[in-house]
Simulated scan of single mutants.
Amino acid sequence: MKPSPILAIALAALFASGSALAQSPATIKANIERLTGGKVKVDQIQATPAPGIYQVISDGEVFYTDASGRFGIIGGTMLDMQTRQDLTADTVNRLTSVPFSSLPLRHAIKEVHGNGSRKVALFEDPNCPICRVFTKFVDQLDDVTVYRFMFPVIDPSSQALARTAWCSPDRAGTWKAIMAGRRPTGTQDCDVSGLVEILKFGEKHRIQNTPTVFLGNGKRLVGATPPEQFVAELDASGKAQ
């Protein structure tokens, strides 16, 4: 998970201030918050398998600190070199997952491919080059129910395109044409409260990049996931439902 600028700046203060070794996670928490001037609020802290290193969760971000709370490691992944287990991934997945049923599905463009047994929710922007490639890939998937969400966040022109599709009598067809690169014209004067609800959902759940995908088991995938990995994740999510 990429750290926010505020978190990175605040944690830099850890290297400029001294601190006695902590005796407990509560003391480490207090030290981090003191040394960063209260800019980093620790939501959770726990020991890792590595002696003297603790995993910290702060406002949805994951980082690591030493036993004193003075030195922080941000933007990295902790691995068990012997078992090759990613010790950060489980925490990140837990923090970023969203129950599929909580998505604003009634406002999505729904497509059923084959038996529709697997589920995918796709947040996409027409001005996102990766989205335009990825949406064609999703079109080719078999036995999947796809929920496409208009998520116009890249550029003001994205919002105009989304409104055009939203207000079209053929919402699905117009959006597909827009995602294919065409720029149809039409009215933008209609009730867009559903589109607003999608954007509010994205803000609430920190959807900050496109494409963002939620699988049926709630797992979030962001950006250009390699096709083989995506299909494997999709298959695994179907088994977990």
Rank of each mutant, 00 (worst) to 15 (best):
C131Q: 09
C131D: 08
C131G: 07
R132N: 11
R132W: 03
V133H: 13
V133S: 13
V133Q: 15
F134C: 05
F134I: 13
F134K: 12
F134E: 12
T135E: 14
T135V: 15
T135W: 07
T135Q: 14
T135C: 08
T135H: 15
K136N: 12
F137G: 01
F137L: 03
V138W: 03
V138L: 12
V138N: 05
V138E: 06
D139K: 14
D139A: 14
D139E: 15
Q140H: 05
Q140T: 14
Q140C: 00
L141M: 09
L141V: 03
L141S: 03
L141W: 00
L141G: 06
L141D: 08
D142Q: 15
D142W: 03
D143C: 01
V144Q: 07
T145K: 04
T145V: 04
T145R: 02
T145A: 08
T145W: 06
T145Y: 05
V146F: 10
V146Q: 01
V146E: 07
V146N: 04
Y147A: 08
Y147I: 02
R148V: 10
R148K: 13
F149L: 05
F149M: 03
M150A: 14
M150E: 15
M150L: 15
F151V: 10
P152R: 08
P152N: 00
V153F: 01
V153S: 00
V153M: 06
I154D: 00
I154C: 00
I154Q: 02
I154R: 05
D155H: 15
D155L: 12
P156A: 11
P156S: 07
S157D: 14
S157K: 15
S157M: 13
S157Q: 15
S157T: 13
S157E: 14
S158N: 01
S158F: 11
S158Q: 05
S158P: 09
A160N: 11
A160P: 01
A160G: 05
L161R: 12
L161Y: 11
A162T: 01
A162D: 04
A162N: 08
A162M: 00
A162S: 14
A162R: 06
R163P: 05
R163Y: 00
T164R: 12
T164Y: 07
A165L: 11
A165G: 03
A165K: 10
A165P: 09
A165Y: 04
W166L: 03
W166M: 10
C167I: 04
C167Y: 00
S168T: 01
S168N: 12
S168W: 09
S168L: 11
D170I: 07
D170C: 01
R171F: 03
R171I: 02
R171Y: 04
A172G: 01
A172W: 00
A172M: 07
G173S: 06
G173F: 09
W175F: 12
W175K: 04
W175M: 11
W175G: 06
W175N: 05
W175C: 09
K176G: 06
K176Q: 15
K176F: 10
K176V: 11
A177D: 14
A177L: 13
A177M: 11
A177V: 09
A177F: 02
